[in-house]
């Protein structure tokens, strides 16, 4: 059941992105930004965590899930450290994802050559 929910919700979020690409001619960079920002705000008002509760990876793997982590992190840090948490919380929560992307991408740049299509 968890898998079906993850499939359905994850697929549906991607379909939203596809409609934006095909109907608005927005570039993919803009769509990624939009999705993350939406994720942050839905996380901030507590809606996105409920979706994650329901769909698991179906909600956490798409980019709004990344935004949700930023929101969750900033609120936790504000609870823990007060005002300074506004600055530190977001990036701290996203650190693993960003650092992994930097590390693996750097390694990929070392190993692989650009390829033609």
């Amino acid at each position: 059941m968890d898998y079906i929910k993850a499939f359905m919700v994850g697929g549906a979020i991607c379909v939203l992105g596809q409609i934006l690409i095909d109907k608005t001619k927005m570039t993919s960079a803009r769509i990624l930004v939009l999705f993350v920002v939406i994720g942050v705000f839905l996380g901030g008002i507590g809606l996105y965590p409920r979706l994650v509760e329901f769909a698991g990876a179906g909600a956490s793997v798409p980019l709004p899930g990344f935004g949700n982590i930023l929101a969750k992190g900033v609120m936790q840090e504000v609870d823990r450290a007060g005002f300074i948490g506004i600055l530190t919380g977001g990036i701290k929560a996203a650190a693993a994802g960003i650092a992994a992307a930097v590390l693996f991408s750097f390694a990929a740049a070392l190993i692989f050559e650009p390829k033609a299509k």
């Binding site: 690409i21 999705f35 992307a101 693996f104 991408s105």
Partner: peptide, 20 residues
């Protein structure tokens, strides 16, 4: 399309592609 772009894997692809 967005099926590959919207998951976190699309973000990773967007970082690695210009690096290479």
């Amino acid at each position: 399309g967005a099926g590959a772009g919207v998951p976190i894997t699309g973000f990773a692809n967007a970082v690695a592609a210009p690096a290479i």
